[in-house]
């Protein structure tokens, strides 16, 4: 572009479009619910987990029999129950935002606490699953299936723990904005599990 001859004088600020206002400095991302940075994180997370699921399906190609036999060791019913737990927890989180929009901060906090409590239930079920597997000698290095099983579910479980912390923080510093941002993270964790469950536990 340095070869172009620019004769025009500097444009007045008003011509530069929507980026001039404070609110619009995130460009099109400003319209998203919650904070734009949270959405950058969500898309990144979807890419990471999506990559892991594709890795899972791709690795299975090399030895479908090993994957089928290993997957039968998973507790599919526990996974289904956990799906329901997280989806219900998501409802609580959404109701917290709803209450906060009506400036009912106590009710909002109660819903956030309920959402976190269900997050703890999820983790408890997960721990039971892990301990059964580990007790049977099915460790992360047992085979390629279990390496990926522990990686994807473990990474997700870390996000549940992080989510509970985030919900606690936004409950403490409660405002419509903070609660909306915090619950956005929580729904992302929910969404990832909804995708993870059929791919890792069910498809066979």
């Amino acid at each position: 572009m340095q070869h172009e001859q620019k004769e025009a004088a500097p444009q007045p600020a008003s011509d530069a479009g929507e980026t001039d206002t404070l609110a619009g400095s995130w460009g099109i991302l400003s319209t998203l619910p919650g904070h734009p940075m949270m959405w950058i994180l969500i898309v990144s997370e979807i890419l990471v987990f999506g990559g892991a699921f594709i890795a899972f399906a791709g690795t299975r190609l090399a030895d479908p029999e090993l994957f089928r036999a290993s997957q039968d060791h998973l507790d599919r019913l526990a996974g289904a129950i956990n799906t329901m737990v997280l989806l219900t927890s998501g409802l609580c989180a959404a109701l917290a935002v709803n209450a906060m929009a009506e400036a009912k901060v106590h009710i909002a906090r109660r819903w956030l606490a309920a959402a976190s409590a269900l997050g703890v239930v999820f983790l408890a079920v997960k721990m039971v699953e892990y301990s059964t597997k580990l007790g049977a000698g099915l460790t992360p290095t047992a085979n390629s299936f279990f390496t990926l099983y522990y990686l994807t579910t473990g990474f997700h479980a870390l996000h549940v723990i992080a989510g509970i912390l985030i919900l606690a923080i936004v409950s403490w510093k409660a405002s419509l904005e903070t609660i909306e941002i915090g619950t956005t993270f929580w729904h992302m964790v929910d969404l990832v599990w909804v995708l993870l469950f059929p791919v890792v536990y069910l498809m066979r």
Partner: peptide
Amino acid sequence: FLIALMLVVVTSLYMLAR
């Protein structure tokens, strides 16, 4: 679209090794 793309790839890979 992103999620559909991921699911299509995963499902196709599953179908490949049946």
